[in-house]
Design a protein around this nucleic acid. Structure first.
Lengths: 276, 276
DNA sequence: AAAATAATGGAATAAAAATTCCATAGCATG
DNA sequence: CATGCTATGGAATTTTTATTCCATTATTTT
């Protein structure tokens, strides 16, 4: 076993690998070779699998881990699993720390929201369901009228969507609940509804979507989970998970998705007009 | 155990999750919720870890796996480990993949907005004027009533601000222009106005801010430049520069700043109350 | 309100995986 | 070519992890 301290990051790991692989015996060098080429598999494989891949015995692989400075395979794997998870730090814990420090200064809060926003955006980029997004664009591009609905914390998103539609000369109404007018009359056959709602889901939004669906109309939903009550309306579900800061979220990802959707619809419509 | 066939891809998995999660009992729904939000952890975690994450017993998590169509956790994990390699590429690559689908495809546009949002947030973090921000928090925390005003593309920001204030039980009104009522009567001496406006600046917003300033009231402005017409109102100017995508912007930075401002005010008020 | 059914928690068990150990094979050195 | 040292393979052991089972608790139905 090496008396060296174990690497704690990918960089350190690679450095040590390069450093010692020269002087390794044959089998262990095979391990080094294989590991260098398949770094990404370490987090999700067993010693048995890796040793087969490297063409050595499990015990040989074990010795390799120890030479690298770890106590064994498990410890080495732990490092890789943690590196992978690093992108999603535990926000609950971080917030607790923040609270514990009494650090609710404006700048600390702003930093939190900025960081939460960045994470949410990254996550959006890697989890968005492109197929559904494209279907939603098609449906909306063909709609004679778009109804946008979203209350409470979804309302800013709804209002921004209708602003964007207006700017692009796309027929759209924002159902804002002003005057408690019955919005149902406005919905005609063929119209499309964009419903935005997050847990706890607001009943008005769900009802409107359900009503439109009952008429045989298409519904596009923007929500924070694939499950949720919009499911019943057969909606094209676009789910976004925002990283919360305390009881609030910055809506960065949701608004980005919404505006991208709107602009895509605009682009698609232009294409359709040009095509004719 | 379900007689359904097990999902073999992330899409299938998500689909099935959405499909059955409404009809699940409480604990299993907790699992579904947690899994939907932490898909990336499954490949590198144990049942024990995931079940504490979801707040359930390991056996409950087990039943969840079976309901999803797998024989057990191991089989489910296998699916995630196999698709793991595709998720490993970093954020830059994922963005490229989004862009690869053609210039004005929804995914390329989304990538643009995501990237613009990230840049804007970075920029916000490094350029925000902390001193002004803190002054604004102080002023707002002391206000008997907060008036929020912002039209057109600033309106989503304004509405989110008033949502946040409402949630924190802070007296605030959103001047939304509905009914063309004269908003000036609502403004009393000592009230504070938050005015949000971007070029081209909307006259109503400027007028309201100027009126409040004329009464001797404080004005907090969120805008896209330090100059601009709000200057005249002696406002505490918070400037945010958003990166545009074509004619649109994702508002990520502006909303983050706004919500951080609101939450800071809430925190400050609590402190003031505790102090007395 | 009682009975039946479904859900849950927790401990017991089974399975899988990691780790160690040791006998043997290879290799260099005198 | 014998001796000591290192490397190796494979089986035995230990540890961790998944899975099952059942008693208890909720929920629904009659």
């Amino acid at each position: 076993m090496s008396d060296q301290i174990a690497p704690v990051s990918l960089e350190e790991f690679n450095h040590r690998l390069a450093e010692i692989s020269e002087t390794m015996p044959k089998r262990l060098r095979q391990c080094a070779e294989y590991v260098a080429q398949n770094t990404d598999r370490i987090a999700v494989s067993t010693v048995a699998e890796l040793s087969v891949g490297a063409g050595v015995q499990p015990s040989a692989f074990m010795r390799f881990c120890q030479l690298m400075g770890f106590s064994g395979f498990s410890e080495m794997q732990k490092m890789f699993r943690e590196t992978y998870a690093q992108k999603w730090p535990d926000y609950a814990t971080r917030l607790e720390n923040l609270r514990a420090n009494g650090d609710d200064s404006p700048s600390a809060l702003l930093a939190e929201f900025v960081e939460a926003g960045r994470l949410s955006l990254e996550n959006l980029a890697s989890t968005v369901d492109l197929e559904t997004l494209e279907k939603a664009v098609d449906v909306l591009a063909a709609a004679p009228m778009i109804h946008v609905v979203g209350f409470r914390r979804a309302f800013p998103v709804a209002s921004y969507l209708s602003y964007a539609f207006e700017k692009m000369n796309i027929a759209a109404v924002l159902h804002d609940g002003v005057g408690n007018l019955n919005p149902y009359h406005a919905i005609r056959k063929g119209d499309v509804v964009i419903a935005i709602t997050f847990a706890p889901y607001s009943q008005e939004t769900i009802d409107l979507a359900a009503y439109a669906h009952g008429l045989g109309n298409k519904v596009v939903a923007i929500s924070d989970a694939l499950s949720g009550p919009m499911r019943k309306t057969d909606a094209l579900m676009l789910s976004v998970s925002e990283v919360d800061v305390g009881a609030f979220r910055a809506l960065s990802a949701t608004i980005s998705l919404a505006i991208a959707l709107a602009v895509s619809v605009g682009a698609k419509r232009e294409k359709l007009i040009d095509g004719k």
